[in-house]
Design a protein around this nucleic acid. Structure first.
Lengths: 153, 153
DNA sequence: GACGTGAGTTCCTTAAGGGAACCCTGACTT
DNA sequence: AAGTCAGGGTTCCCTTAAGGAACTCACGTC
């Protein structure tokens, strides 16, 4: 299987997919987020092939999403989220919300979030960073930005 | 290549990935969202193989994310977002935000959102649907929910 | 009756994921 | 000093998915 790289597209969605769009990558980030930082833990928890896990971790480190750092005198390493990676967790939180709403079924959500600020069980909601009102698919117009394909510089 | 299905995992992120985690699927949704509803349009815009496009569209229709409907007496069909699919656009909006921030470089974002409510160029922000305060990776604790693996019905 | 068009199929090639076995490095044990 | 252990990967083979080009099919139009 060849796979087309999306990174050439003038689209932030495509570019983001080039960083975490491969199978397993989001689940690896999820696990690292909740404290599974080591190769063996990730492999065991996900049931992913060791080969693919190696490839994914290397890619995520190259992209600056994870940092690989030693935790022992022996050659032992753990993976932690960088700032760039931590901001990707936003994505996972939104995915969780959608999955909870549309795929969890009778049983309900497997995991709940308790929000520190209010102490309540809650989910994320998308709002405008300018006016604070809800901002979803139907609430926006799309305009070409400075980085649109073909614009100078 | 075999591919492990994530749908058995008690995790809303994994389940969501089973719906739109395959390569191209998010880009197909993006295109449909902005009004590219037909097979030929999608194929030409994305440069995706026709075979894979067929597979993806069928899968998205099966999952209830897209609806396939005729628009002519001839066998012509177009694909439109269902409600379930429209809610997935949330995810794309967050991806766009992250890509803009971390991958757009000097050129800046290729696309901008203008928010209907305030008329300004803006981006999405994650907030708590309970108290309205910001809610991101570091702002939550994770608790087991009713649908956690092993809990009775 | 030939032609055009949108929407797919078919078929072949290439490469990515799965999985099991193997390797390497540095401690620990005896 | 030799053997063992553990974490963190490599290697290798097999299967299957993605790319890509060519083909098909149903319906309208000229």
């Amino acid at each position: 299987m060849q796979r087309t790289s999306f990174s050439g597209m003038a689209c932030s969605i495509a570019r983001t997919l080039d960083v975490i769009g491969e199978p397993w990558s989001p689940l690896i980030l999820r696990d690292v987020w909740v404290g599974m930082n080591r190769f063996e833990q990730l492999q065991a928890d996900l049931g992913i092939s060791r080969k693919v896990l190696t490839e994914r971790l290397n890619h995520l480190v190259e992209q600056g999403v994870l940092e690989r750092r030693p935790y022992d005198q022996r050659p032992r390493y753990e993976y932690v989220l960088t700032v760039k990676g931590t901001e990707l967790i936003d994505l996972l939180m939104v995915m969780k919300g959608w999955g909870d709403r549309w795929l969890a079924g009778e049983a309900g959500p497997p995991v709940l979030y308790r929000h520190h600020a209010c102490g309540e069980i809650a989910d994320v909601e998308l709002r405008c960073d300018h006016c604070g009102e809800p901002m979803r698919a139907g609430d926006v117009d799309l305009l070409p930005g400075p980085g649109v394909a073909g614009s100078a510089t």
